[in-house]
Design a protein around this nucleic acid. Structure first.
Lengths: 245, 245
DNA sequence: TTGCTCCTCACGTCACGTGAGGTGGC
DNA sequence: TTGCTCCTCACGTCACGTGAGGTGGC
């Protein structure tokens, strides 16, 4: 024996916990059309058998499963426990939860250290190039003062350069100190000549160009070194950019 | 000396990290109108001083602060660290995070125990009314079997009733066993006569009426007892509803 | 002249909630 | 006749993203 009672939308709403506007919406999009619609009054009539389906919809919406996925679930003949849809939704919620936790951390950082653009945090100077009169004398001086050892480098038949690394890259201590006996004089470079570790080298490089800088070399990868590029500020000072990890 | 350089929207987008559509949108809603707009071409020109403001907007949007609140922040003369706006947003994110955790728990419950409406979980039978021939004999029998003591109750000059509580309300053990020597015969009551502990008594009561039940008494609070109501099923069986905690 | 950048509509997103204005059913 | 329920538009939500179709600037 089948119970073929029909419910008006208000009664069906009470039975299923779905709101009347939601039921109308589900009818409109074809998710849960009523069993019959009165020809004269356009009243929607829902059958008793639809209560179970509607409750399933309600339960899945309660955990924010998208309607298209609910549609796929209830279209199947036996939607006993839609495990895969639930697993998908679960991982979505977990992802969002993790993202929220990260945002909360960012806010705490804002509160503690002031509001800054994410791309601008985690940046620091990591290289200084120094021009000296007497390379050997300078090497002795810096090795004595900073307790580092310089290595030698020569580009083609250009002048000799000395460079010393504090720490290895990537590490928090990574820092380059370079000595040369002649001005590098790249593109009318001014007096300053340093390197900057940045969170997003492409973005900073573009910003530098937009802000009036001149491109010396575009971002490129080097062996055993962070991705790097060079630009001049509008006054001709040379700035090397290094991609932070 | 002021730097009164003007940037096209593309350059300003690179400088601030805000997308071009976002910048147009912020102009449209009056959040961040450009310093000037070309009369002929309608090109937007942004001033250097707007970079800081735009970056603040970007940083706040990055943690999903609503635009109207950002508007309040940047309208203030010194938006150094908008602590209160950040605190508000923080608690919002924490709330949402908690809600997500609860949803994940619900999903795990669905996966383990099947998908059910939230209002239908946490329900159980918590009362049975038994009609007996000999009240004293029945009392002895049930006290012996279930190790409980019955108390006596008489409504007006009606028949004597015995009732025993397992556990106290609210507790997981709470259960009523009632004995009477005559049919309660409320509204042509059928044979069954029991109580049901439910998660939302108002909702279940309404559902019962919509589903064809008859109201005996509407939900009301009793001293030392859960909120309760009574309905008859379409066959006349009596069901008491109790609000779970 | 060719790209490149910029412009203005206008629609889509997601799942309904909320009136406005009007009508059937007891 | 009075409420009550139900109906159909149509707009609002939130902050943009995404074309369509067209134009200035080097």
């Amino acid at each position: 024996v089948s119970d073929d009672r029909l419910f008006n939308i208000g009664a069906f709403s009470v039975l299923t916990g779905l709101s009347i506007p939601a039921l109308r919406h589900y009818d409109e999009i074809g998710l849960l059309p009523p069993t019959s619609v009165d020809v004269n009054t356009a009243y929607r009539r829902y059958g008793l058998a639809q209560v179970a389906t509607a409750r399933l919809v309600r339960a899945l919406r309660a955990v924010e499963v998208p309607i298209d996925e609910i549609r796929a679930v209830i279209t199947v003949t036996d939607p006993a426990t839609p495990t895969s849809a639930l697993a998908v939704q679960r991982s979505r919620l977990v992802d969002r939860s993790r993202a929220l936790a990260a945002l909360i951390d960012v806010i705490d950082d804002y509160i503690e250290n002031g509001v800054r653009m994410a791309q601008l945090s985690g940046c620091r100077i990591c290289e200084v190039n120094v021009t000296v009169d007497d390379l050997d004398a300078a090497r002795s001086f810096y090795e004595a003062v900073f307790a580092v050892e310089f290595a030698e480098e020569r580009h083609g038949d250009g002048p000799l350069h000395l460079f010393a690394a504090f720490g290895t890259w990537p590490s928090d201590e990574f820092f380059l100190l370079n000595l040369s006996s002649s001005e590098r004089d790249l593109y009318r470079a001014g007096r300053a000549d340093f390197g900057f570790l940045v969170a997003d080298i492409e973005a900073v490089h573009q910003r530098a160009l937009v802000a009036g800088g001149t491109e010396i070399s575009e971002p490129a990868d080097l062996d055993g070194m962070p991705r790097t590029s060079s630009i001049c500020d509008p006054s001709g000072n040379l700035i090397n950019l290094y991609q932070n990890v």
